[in-house]
Computed example of a mutant assay.
Amino acid sequence: MSDGDLSIGQVAQRTGLSVHALRLYERRGLLASEVRRDGSGRRVYSAWDVEWLTNCVKFRASGMPLTTISQLARLVREGSGNEAERLQLLREHQRRITAQLAQLSDCLDLVNDKVASYEEHLAAGATGDPW
């Protein structure tokens, strides 16, 4: 390995993905570049691979399906000329996240109202269920 190369264990530590998950990501075509191998056949990753995988972790945390990440990775691997397709995938996901945030905001409003109701109920020394 050269100075900038990272082992699968180092990448696992930096991304929070398990070694098993990294191998799965490779098999599923979720990486934006081909995984290189050293002279012993061990996987070798670059800083760019870590950056991509960190983005993938965030994509997954936001609910992006693995199939969408795979499509995006394929487009990145293909190089320039398909930026409009990449943008379309990201905009679709952006819309889903925005809808999720609106729904979560409504849920938070409900919980905040219930917390305030119970706090007032308890502060007043009231008995019974304030529901």
Rank of each mutant, 00 (worst) to 15 (best):
G79R: 04
L72T: 02
Q88N: 14
G79T: 03
I69V: 14
Q100C: 08
P65T: 04
H93Q: 10
T98W: 03
Q103N: 10
R96Y: 04
S62V: 02
H93S: 05
R91E: 08
D106Y: 01
A61H: 10
Q94P: 01
I69A: 04
S62D: 09
R60K: 15
R60G: 09
P65D: 03
R60Y: 11
A73I: 05
G63S: 09
L104H: 08
G79C: 03
A61P: 00
D109A: 09
C107G: 13
T98K: 05
D109P: 00
R91P: 00
A61F: 09
A84K: 11
Q94G: 14
K58F: 12
E85V: 06
R60Q: 15
G81I: 06
R60W: 09
Q100W: 00
L110P: 00
L87T: 10
E83M: 05
L90K: 03
I69L: 12
D109S: 13
E83V: 04
L90Y: 08
E85R: 11
L89G: 03
N82F: 03
G79W: 02
L110D: 14
Q94H: 14
Q71H: 07
T68H: 06
L89E: 05
D106E: 15
Q94L: 13
L110Q: 13
E83A: 08
L90E: 07
N82C: 06
R60A: 15
L66P: 00
L110Y: 13
K58T: 14
G81T: 06
S70W: 01
E78T: 00
R74T: 07
S80E: 15
Q94N: 12
V57M: 11
A61M: 12
R96L: 10
V76C: 03
R96G: 01
L104Q: 13
S105A: 12
L90Q: 07
E78Y: 00
L90D: 04
I69Y: 04
R91M: 11
L87D: 10
L108G: 03
Q94E: 10
C56P: 01
R96N: 07
F59R: 04
V57S: 09
Q71L: 07
L66C: 07
G63V: 05
L72W: 02
Q94K: 11
H93G: 02
G63A: 13
E92C: 13
L101K: 13
T68P: 01
M64Q: 02
E85K: 10
A73E: 09
E85D: 12
E92Y: 12
Q103A: 10
L108R: 15
Q71P: 05
R95G: 01
E85I: 04
A102Q: 12
C56D: 04
C107D: 15
F59V: 05
G79Q: 01
D106K: 08
L110E: 14
P65G: 04
M64S: 05
A84W: 03
Q71C: 07
R96S: 11
E78C: 00
S70C: 08
D106A: 15
L87H: 13
